[in-house]
């Protein structure tokens, strides 16, 4: 039987960065995977959860339990949102036995995009060509909480022409942290500035990452500082590279 793969788009990508989701669909198509989009999904609830409002997060998170119940795989462009499901859903939904069951079922089938490509599809080379100097920011939640460390690098290594320059202090948080950026703006800005400075120092034309929250933060800071680095999600870079590779 054909495997059913759902796109867990995340509210941020849905509303601000639809191109990222589109790129994901195209890449997955090229790997022989048809993607479905269950429209019941809204948001994983993480913003409220991390602010201490678990009940509010639960109400919103239920949309995911419903949306993805019938799928074999759930793929997200964000390690942070996928991490939310992995780490907090089982305890967030522990009051109701039915919800506990759906939450527990959702965990093992939820993947971050690069994780899904490398571990489920076994793909590291998409035939992409992207002749640019690129640096990579590993997002904290994806790399630390979900353990996605090597996968994005493996995929980038498979891109021809790409010159990957290491980002100094790459593992340092960019200062986003959802509501943190709004509640502690001075500290958050200091962190974002430092990150933007390191990115600039690499001389890279492109900053690539796997989480639009962080990229929105770093990109917004870079732009505010008048730096002309292009900021891309890994899926966008790979897709653009595949188009070029084909051309």
């Amino acid at each position: 039987m054909r495997m059913r793969v759902a796109l867990f788009v995340t509210c941020l990508v849905d509303n601000f960065y639809p191109r990222v989701a589109e790129s994901m669909v195209r890449i997955l198509n090229s790997c022989g995977v048809e993607v479905e989009f269950p429209p019941e999904q809204t948001c994983c609830g993480q913003p409220a959860f991390n602010s201490g409002y678990a009940q509010q997060a639960r109400v919103v998170g239920r949309t995911l339990l419903e949306a993805f119940a019938d799928f074999d795989y759930v793929v997200s462009p964000s390690g942070s949102c996928a991490g939310m499901v992995h780490h907090h859903y089982p305890s967030l939904f522990d009051a109701d036995p039915d919800e506990t069951r759906s939450a527990r079922e959702l965990v093992p089938k939820t993947y971050e995009f690069s994780q899904f490509l490398v571990h489920v599809l076994g793909v590291t080379d998409l035939g992409a060509f992207f002749p640019h100097r690129v640096t990579y920011h590993p997002s904290c939640h994806g790399s630390r909480l979900l353990g996605v460390k090597e996968e994005p690098l493996q995929l980038l290594a498979g891109v021809r022409g790409l010159d990957l320059v290491p980002l100094p202090h790459a593992e340092d948080c960019c200062g986003f942290g959802g509501a943190f950026a709004v509640k502690m703006p001075e500290i958050s800005t200091a962190m974002a500035t430092e990150k933007a400075d390191w990115v600039t120092e690499t001389g890279a034309e492109v900053l690539v990452g796997t989480d639009m929250g962080c990229l929105m933060n770093i990109g917004g800071r870079l732009r505010h500082m008048g730096r002309s680095v292009r900021v891309m999600h890994l899926a966008e870079l790979l897709h653009e590279g595949m188009e070029q590779g084909r051309g």
Binding site: V9, V13, D14, N15, F16, Y17, P18, R19, A21, E22, F37, A181, V182, P185, T189, A192, T193, M216, N217, G219, G220, R221, R223, H224
Partner: peptide, 15 residues
Amino acid sequence: WTGSRHAPALAPEPF
């Protein structure tokens, strides 16, 4: 946020 960072606008059409 916006005092030190440019914020993205919502895309004309959601995914």
